[in-house]
Simulated assay, not measured.
Amino acid sequence: MSHISLQRSARQAAIKWFVIMQDADIEHPERSRFEEWLFSHPAHQRAYQEVCTLWEDLDSPDRLLHLESAMQQKIFIEKTDRSKKIRTVITRTLSVMFFAVAGISAYYGYEAWESQPTMHMVANTAIGQIRSQVLEDGTKLMVNANSDIEITYTRKERRVILKQGEASFDVAKNPDRPFVVDSGLARITVLGTRFAVNKFSSKVRISVDHGVVRVEPQQYLTTELTGVNRYAEHVLTLRDNEVAEFNLNGQSKRLQRPAADAFSFEFGTITFDQAGLEEIAETLSRYRQLPVTAQFDTANDVSITAVIQAKYTERFITELPIIAPVKVNTDRNATLLIPKKMQTSRKP
């Protein structure tokens, strides 16, 4: 028998055996005969493997049985082989796309999972009221009078928005979840430390009792990439007993003053260290229903250092003209602090 005849005969037999054995169980009576035929010649094994490979492209066993002629088989095999190559390329491409999409979906899904809030709270204090609270991670929070903060914990970050006023934080250390305070003018980032943030209209003051705090001006965070060089000098790292201020322009400066002064409000004490009238007015307004305002005069602003009990705020305002060149005007809407103009001497 020629090679071509042997190949055609093996293929025809393989098709018939495939139709018989595709639904046969292990105990089928024809299985022993099939196995005897299959292992009797390498050509039988090649032909049967070819039929198994092509089966997925056929609609029914009847179509297999009708592939009797060598020409039909040759045309079918060539067509199927081309389809198989195309299908392989498409399958591989779709596989790559699937895993890419799956990877991207998993990444953003994980990001969304990490960013999902695990704790959210708002802490508001009324005029003259001081509030203390221990957060779920053990962080201790003290909120000064007339202050407003919002706290959100996620799995990757602990974030506080200081909308108004003053607060101190004794942060539980967690390297995997930094503690971030957004004060509007600056962002403060820590891992574990005790610090205080005091927000005024034109500046924000950060005082570190112990630990390490990184402070970045808000302009640095929101400007274009070229802004790094412009604001890098104002990004500060504060350590034990260090104090710094950031103004509306994103400029920072370190202050030579005790950091402990920033925590005095926790004990009902107001501490002024070379404070101007604007700072004094905003601070006193936290402790009285009638707000205190100040007439700003750069040339004649005062510098006052004083320590008072919050409950004696009214007495301090009354005595203010005695200890500093300040005039106090009070009406039904507010108390106004006005710096007195410097008296110039005249020659006779």
Rank of each mutant, 00 (worst) to 15 (best):
271 T>K: 14
152 T>S: 10
8 R>M: 11
98 F>E: 00
225 L>D: 04
156 K>F: 06
204 V>S: 11
108 Y>G: 01
109 G>Y: 04
280 I>F: 05
269 T>N: 07
323 I>T: 07
290 L>K: 09
215 V>G: 00
263 F>C: 10
264 S>D: 10
147 S>N: 09
327 K>N: 11
179 F>C: 07
169 F>H: 11
26 I>V: 15
236 L>M: 05
229 N>C: 02
157 E>H: 02
37 W>S: 12
118 T>K: 09
300 N>I: 11
325 P>W: 07
227 G>S: 02
81 D>R: 04
183 S>M: 14
107 Y>Q: 03
143 V>P: 04
216 E>W: 14
212 V>I: 14
238 L>G: 06
79 K>C: 01
132 S>P: 00
226 T>F: 15
103 G>F: 03
283 T>R: 14
267 F>W: 02
282 E>P: 15
23 D>P: 04
250 G>M: 06
210 H>N: 01
131 R>C: 08
192 G>Y: 05
97 M>C: 13
108 Y>R: 05
191 L>D: 02
241 N>L: 08
118 T>R: 07
52 C>K: 03
54 L>F: 11
140 K>G: 06
205 R>F: 07
115 S>R: 13
193 T>K: 10
22 Q>R: 00
199 K>P: 14
205 R>S: 08
179 F>D: 02
16 K>T: 05
45 Q>E: 13
189 T>M: 05
337 L>G: 00
6 L>C: 02
259 A>S: 11
347 K>A: 08
100 A>V: 14
239 R>E: 00
160 V>D: 00
253 K>D: 03
70 A>W: 12
33 R>K: 08
287 Y>D: 02
229 N>W: 15
5 S>F: 04
138 G>L: 06
194 R>G: 00
58 L>Y: 07
340 K>Q: 13
292 V>G: 01
296 F>H: 08
336 L>Q: 11
269 T>Y: 03
138 G>N: 00
276 G>R: 06
5 S>M: 10
157 E>T: 14
19 V>R: 00
222 T>W: 03
